[in-house]
Amino acid sequence: MQIVRGRAAGSAPSQSRTDTFTGTVWADPVLPTTNGNTMNSVTFCPGARTYWHHHTGGQILVVTAGRGWVQSLGEPPQVIRAGDTVWVPPGERHWHGGTADTIMTHLAVSIGPTVWLDEVAEDDYLAALSVVAEEVTAR
């Protein structure tokens, strides 16, 4: 057993993520990468998001602050809020990020390597916004 208080010694410093993210995104590694597995606390500014991607062993997202979206390819976007936990099965193409007007911070546990794909197009992101807005209005 290992207890990590805050973050493990030897973890990389907080990083601005740019190559596979749109907008302003900060990642704070909680544990060093081990066997391709990673654990990061990730904060998305409003409108920021990942590129489409998948994980060879799946991913767990635990939302710790704010409100955001997650969407799997071919599915409608889902609103996620502080306290929510998301399981993304191995190989499932998806993206996640902040809403247009709020930050979102989540703990991301990625099992195995991440396979990065294309950027979520602005038109697709805006379409996701409209779908979520319709759902919220209908409630």
Rank of each mutant, 00 (worst) to 15 (best):
residue 52 W to R: 02
residue 121 A to S: 15
residue 9 A to K: 10
residue 73 L to D: 15
residue 20 T to K: 02
residue 2 Q to D: 05
residue 107 L to E: 06
residue 14 S to H: 05
residue 8 A to P: 01
residue 27 A to E: 08
residue 39 M to N: 11
residue 78 Q to Y: 14
residue 136 V to Q: 11
residue 42 V to W: 08
residue 15 Q to P: 00
residue 125 Y to P: 00
residue 63 V to A: 15
residue 70 V to R: 02
residue 78 Q to V: 08
residue 59 Q to K: 00
residue 109 V to P: 01
residue 136 V to M: 13
residue 2 Q to M: 04
residue 114 T to N: 08
residue 37 N to H: 14
residue 114 T to A: 13
residue 56 T to E: 14
residue 113 P to A: 15
residue 98 G to T: 04
residue 57 G to W: 05
residue 99 T to Y: 02
residue 82 A to S: 09
residue 40 N to K: 04
residue 101 D to R: 04
residue 20 T to N: 08
residue 17 R to Y: 13
residue 93 R to D: 13
residue 11 S to M: 04
residue 23 G to C: 07
residue 128 A to K: 03
residue 110 S to T: 08
residue 50 T to Y: 09
residue 137 T to E: 14
residue 139 R to Q: 13
residue 30 V to M: 11
residue 52 W to D: 03
residue 60 I to N: 09
residue 28 D to K: 02
residue 133 A to W: 01
residue 94 H to M: 07
residue 132 V to I: 15
residue 110 S to R: 06
residue 25 V to T: 07
residue 33 T to W: 11
residue 104 M to F: 12
residue 106 H to F: 11
residue 71 Q to T: 03
residue 62 V to C: 06
residue 139 R to K: 10
residue 66 G to C: 08
residue 21 F to Y: 09
residue 89 P to Y: 12
residue 32 P to K: 01
residue 94 H to T: 01
residue 1 M to W: 06
residue 7 R to D: 05
residue 79 V to M: 13
residue 10 G to E: 04
residue 116 W to L: 03
residue 87 W to A: 03
residue 41 S to A: 15
residue 24 T to P: 05
residue 63 V to N: 09
residue 125 Y to T: 02
residue 32 P to G: 14
residue 121 A to F: 05
residue 87 W to S: 01
residue 82 A to Y: 01
residue 36 G to S: 05
residue 92 E to A: 15
residue 31 L to R: 00
residue 46 P to N: 09
residue 73 L to I: 03
residue 58 G to R: 03
residue 82 A to T: 01
residue 124 D to H: 13
residue 60 I to K: 04
residue 136 V to N: 02
residue 27 A to K: 01
residue 137 T to P: 00
residue 83 G to L: 15
residue 89 P to M: 11
residue 34 T to Y: 09
residue 82 A to L: 00
residue 58 G to N: 06
residue 115 V to H: 13
residue 17 R to F: 12
residue 13 P to L: 07
residue 113 P to L: 13
residue 106 H to Q: 09
residue 42 V to C: 06
residue 138 A to I: 02
residue 134 E to F: 02
residue 136 V to C: 04
residue 6 G to V: 10
residue 122 E to I: 00
residue 63 V to T: 07
residue 56 T to V: 07
residue 93 R to T: 09
residue 135 E to C: 04
residue 122 E to H: 06
residue 5 R to C: 05
residue 94 H to I: 00
residue 40 N to Y: 15
residue 60 I to Y: 14
residue 5 R to Q: 11
residue 31 L to C: 07
residue 122 E to G: 04
residue 94 H to F: 10
residue 128 A to T: 00
residue 94 H to G: 10
residue 105 T to F: 02
residue 6 G to I: 07
residue 70 V to C: 12
residue 84 D to T: 00
residue 111 I to D: 10
residue 88 V to H: 05
residue 31 L to Y: 06
residue 122 E to A: 10
residue 18 T to M: 11
residue 29 P to K: 08
residue 121 A to V: 09
residue 69 W to R: 14
residue 46 P to C: 07
residue 3 I to W: 15
residue 33 T to F: 08
residue 56 T to Y: 09
residue 115 V to L: 15
residue 101 D to L: 07
